[in-house]
Amino acid sequence: MTADSELEPNDDEIEDRQLVLGDLLNHVLDKGVVISGDVMISIADIDLLSVELKLVLASVQTALEHNQSTPDADLSLLRSRSGGR
């Protein structure tokens, strides 16, 4: 291992943090008590009202796979390694 590589962040630790954070976001967005009011999420300035949230996440993943550069949308936390690298 070179001195340069020793200075680099630990890839496993970074990936672990991203996985844990992505898992948390998936749960906050997709689990929990469902109410009779609105569930509102906006992505890329498009309002999505009372939608099936899994569909939203799938759409985000599809968008990321088709367009790696998504203006005004830092959704890297939702990327899997396979989809984002």
Binding site: V28, L29, G32, V33, I35, G37, V39, M40, I41
Partner: peptide, 18 residues
Amino acid sequence: APARYGSRFPDDAACVAD
């Protein structure tokens, strides 16, 4: 019991009613 992110009502009365 956490609500899903984005859960909103028109006002407090609607929330209590639900």
